[in-house]
């Protein structure tokens, strides 16, 4: 059975959502247009810039390279939910203190991508941090401050004194 319109039921930031979507609608467009969760951004729509980064079943993915229709039964988390839940409060504070964002358009994706690395509990090298965020484009900062912020959180979480 194939459809141009698909019924999907999923959880988004812990809430159960049941919607009917166009088969062609990407996950990020679904979140933005249908659920008005506009914290996930559309920067290129071909999987390069990383502004649309969200978590699906615990993994960060490109929101423009998944279809909403594929998310039936999935657990989707966006920057709104991850912020409200407090999971990355320390990372957000570090970004603020270090001015690791300017226009902020890349920031939700950058934070979620960084959190995936930090969740390992290791203290990664600056090179490893740069590698982890290598798929998240930031035109404003030059990346240095972002690397500083992520590094400081890794150290703090590992119990190192700043």
């Amino acid at each position: 059975m194939s459809e141009h319109r698909c019924d999907i039921t999923l959880t988004v930031n812990g809430e159960t959502v049941a919607e009917t979507v166009d088969a062609r609608k990407t996950l990020v467009d679904f979140l933005r247009d249908d659920l008005i969760l506009t914290g996930s951004h559309v920067g290129c729509e071909h999987g390069v810039c990383g502004a649309c980064t969200v978590r699906v079943d615990g993994d960060v993915v490109r929101g423009c390279l998944m279809l909403a229709a594929q998310c039936n039964g999935a657990r989707v988390e966006t920057i709104e939910g991850v912020s409200d839940g407090g999971e990355i409060a320390d990372l957000q504070t570090a970004f603020e203190q270090r001015n690791a964002l300017q226009c902020g358009f890349c920031t939700p994706g950058m934070l979620l991508t960084a959190q995936e690395l930090l969740a390992s509990g290791q203290v990664p090298s600056r090179e490893k941090i740069r590698e982890q965020i290598s798929g998240n484009y930031c035109r404003c900062t030059g990346y240095h401050a972002i690397v500083d912020a992520i590094e400081s959180v890794a150290q703090a979480r590992a119990g190192h004194k700043p």
Partner: peptide
């Protein structure tokens, strides 16, 4: 066929390919 979609969906978004049906293997 739709597997990971990391190349295919990019080409769909660019309208470089326009299949009538996507079959999701996931």
């Amino acid at each position: 066929l739709l597997a990971g979609g990391q190349s295919l969906i990019a080409t769909l978004n660019l309208r470089l390919s326009a299949p009538k049906l996507l079959i999701d293997l996931n």
